[in-house]
Design a protein around this nucleic acid. Structure first.
Lengths: 203, 208
DNA sequence: GCTTTAAAAAGTAATCT
DNA sequence: AGATTACTTTCTAAAGC
């Protein structure tokens, strides 16, 4: 019963985009021939597309030896996928180092503020906010520190994107929650009708 | 001294040429889609500011003019849905929307948040509905806002559903499709909003 | 600016049964 | 009337047009 009020925000990492520098030039034509599952249409896109299953991670592989991995939900899956990709490339005529440099470029997370949001009020009170329900149901909020973009929906569900680390996501979500709470635009169902959520007493 | 004159002449010429082009495009949009004259004048003012802040660089005159008109109509409380506007422009929805966001961010303008009430009169006018129906529809929208049912929803869809319910309550009813077409949304959207509003606001529709 | 990849949110839309 | 699929918004890197 004590934990019933002010549940606070929650979030989950949904997608990690990372770049990998394999350090050697690659023969994409040869790779495409040996890997029938690969997609390679240089007229359409200069990268070769490889899709791994379990976990479902996709890779864009370029002539220069640089690679983009998308779809991972955690760093472990990402690292394993990179190792699997390196082995796959080496088994098909390439000669790339076993432990290439991996850089996380973007993290997408979904989450919930566990409170409904008055988007119209939030749009008026927040700076760098755009709310255009004719075009998209979510309010687009550009946070400067950390530098992320959060999509906020009336239900309290959110999407945070642009983060470079999991910590950025956690900080951004908590900061957003605190800011919306102080603006009085968060609402919880009970307590005698739509009433602004009561501030949590900090000791 | 000669180079200075040439530069000045060139700048003025390009600015004026672009502005005249935009004015012609806005005039064309006005006559083809029946936009009120004040909206066109407001759009011209917005376009002039965009030109001064060099926001038109690399963008088509058509897309920026359409975005300026969309913004002007909303500022003067006579909104036109973006999807209706782009049917009269050769610019893509994507580019007009991008120009609009650029104008929103770069110009110090306050564009009122899209209000379903503003779409009610448009729908009512097209369907020649009575003032009582409009009054009831506005009341429905206001109650929906208080109940927190409007967040994220297309104002045109909300207006169509409110007017549909209002006309049902006032007897003379028409099909959901009539309201959908008048508001520029699908019947499915009108139906979804109608069900949601009727249930949440506990509105009893007389069966006849 | 575009092309391609992944992912979520909630709304709207097109198509099929 | 549903159900399904698909598109809207946000982000990010890659190489080339």
């Amino acid at each position: 019963m004590d934990s019933s009020r002010a549940a606070g925000p929650t979030h989950k990492i949904e997608n990690i985009v990372a770049t990998v520098n394999l350090g050697v030039e690659l023969d994409l034509e040869q790779l495409a021939e040996r890997l029938p599952v690969a997609e390679y249409n240089p007229d359409q896109f200069p990268g070769l597309i490889l899709r791994l299953t379990r976990p479902r991670i996709s890779a864009l592989i370029f002539r220069t030896g640089k690679m983009v991995c998308t779809g991972a939900k955690n760093e472990t899956d990402l690292k394993n996928a990179v190792h699997a990709l390196v082995k796959l490339l080496n088994d098909n005529g390439a000669d790339v180092p076993l432990n290439p440099e991996v850089q996380v470029q973007n993290i997408v997370a979904s989450g919930s503020l566990n409170a409904e949001v008055d988007l119209e009020q939030a749009a008026l009170l927040l700076d760098n906010a755009m709310y255009e329900p004719e075009q998209f149901p979510g309010l687009i909020y550009r946070m400067t520190e950390p530098r992320v973009v959060v999509l906020i929906f009336g239900s309290g569900k959110i999407v945070c994107t642009g983060a470079k680390s999991e910590k950025d996501v956690a900080v951004a979500v908590q900061r957003l929650y605190d800011r919306l709470k102080e603006l009085g635009v968060l609402y919880v169902e009970e307590g005698g009708g739509a009433e602004a959520e009561e501030a949590e007493e900090e000791e | 001294r000669l180079r200075k004159w040439q530069t000045r002449a060139r700048v003025q010429t390009s600015y004026e040429r672009n502005f005249v082009q935009a004015a012609q495009e806005l005039e064309r949009l006005k006559s083809s889609m029946g936009v009120p004259r004040p909206c066109v004048e407001q759009a011209l003012e917005i376009y002039r500011q965009a030109l001064e802040k060099e926001l038109v660089r690399g963008r088509s005159v058509e897309a920026m003019a359409a975005a300026a008109l969309y913004m002007a109509c909303r500022m003067l409380k006579t909104p036109r849905p973006l999807d209706e506007l782009i049917r009269y422009t050769k610019a893509s929805r994507r580019e007009v929307a991008r120009c609009y966001r650029l104008l929103l961010r770069e110009l110090n303008v306050r564009v009122p948040i899209s209000d379903p009430v503003l779409y009610i009169s448009r729908v009512a006018e097209q369907l020649k509905l009575t003032g009582d129906v409009v009054k009831t529809a506005i009341d429905i929208i206001n109650r929906a806002k208080k109940a927190g049912l409007t967040a994220g929803k297309d104002p045109a869809g909300l207006a169509a559903a409110a007017v549909y319910i209002a006309s049902l309550l006032h007897g003379d009813n028409r099909t959901q499709k009539d309201f959908a077409v008048a508001a520029g949304v699908t019947e499915v959207t009108v139906r979804n909003r109608y069900k949601e509003l009727a249930k949440a606001l506990d509105i009893k529709i007389p069966v006849k």
